[in-house]
Amino acid sequence: MIHSSKAGFMSGRTLRQRFPLLSMIIQRLLLSVVLLFAVSIVIFGGIEALPGDFATTYLGQSATPQAVANIRTELGLNKPVVTRYVEWLGGALTGDFGTSWANRNSVSEQIGGRLGNSLFLAFFAAIISVPLAVGLGMLAVLFRNRLPDRIINIVSLAAISLPEFFVGYLLIVWFAVNTGIATFPATVYDGMPFLDRLSAIALPTATLVLVVIAHMMRMTRAAIINVMSSAYVETAELKGLGGLRIIARHAAPNALAPVINVVALNLAYLVVGVVVVEVVFVYPGIGQYMVDAVSVRDMPVVQACGFIFAAFYIFLNMIADILAIIANPRLRHPR
């Protein structure tokens, strides 16, 4: 270890040693692509393995063998699995997820609007919850084991312990029914004015914030406390710096990596895990769309949603990985 740093000694330094940061980032990118490919196989194979058949469900009482065969031919289900997978993947990579079996519309078009709604909701939930969680985490460290720390802990734990639909209904009862300061349902439509949209999503956003904040806050607190016992924090203390400055400037930068990972997981949840919240608030997001598609066995839609969710998860985690790598000064500034 000591030796490899003495650059002059090394005769043939590999690319990896010369550009550690770049090579690690490229490695993560390649890994993500491989992962996405693997996920596509799992999704396609999983749906293939599902019991039940669209044609029989669709035709109901009138499912004669001839009619079923006709529909299967029409949907291309008589082709071999591999051919169908390759066709589907080829389309998916160019943004074409085929047509819905239920209503013969383009899946991509339908998803487009829904995904936009979901991202809109997730974005506002994220810009409120992430700074709030990190800030509260720092405050909890500053007042460690004292009253503010306990209050922050108890409230956030309570919020995460309640099921999200319950939190949602509570908020509806208090703010929409009893006091009437918020609107319900949170239905949005195309061409709705921006401010109306904001007020429509107020309650679902609040629900999501309450659900995700505890996890990020507690991770921030734990990661910073872990760093607080290190010698450089003592150095900062012996420089006579104030508590908040020590936490924000000397402890937090070294606690970034675990916090970034938890934030990424929660952001991914905000995009792909909001099904329940969307249903409770009748919000036309992608989660609700997927639930509807599952109930009628509209496989192209289910596949597309699954693939997009997986892509989001992988993308956000990759970004988190890369940010965590960049946060390490040893990799950012090699010797």
């Binding site: 010698a231 450089y232 003592e234 150095t235 900062a236 000397h250 930068p253 040893r330």
Partner: peptide
């Protein structure tokens, strides 16, 4: 130990 007493992030 100055190595531990300096903050690695700055």
């Amino acid at each position: 130990s100055a190595a531990a007493a300096f903050n690695p992030a700055h």
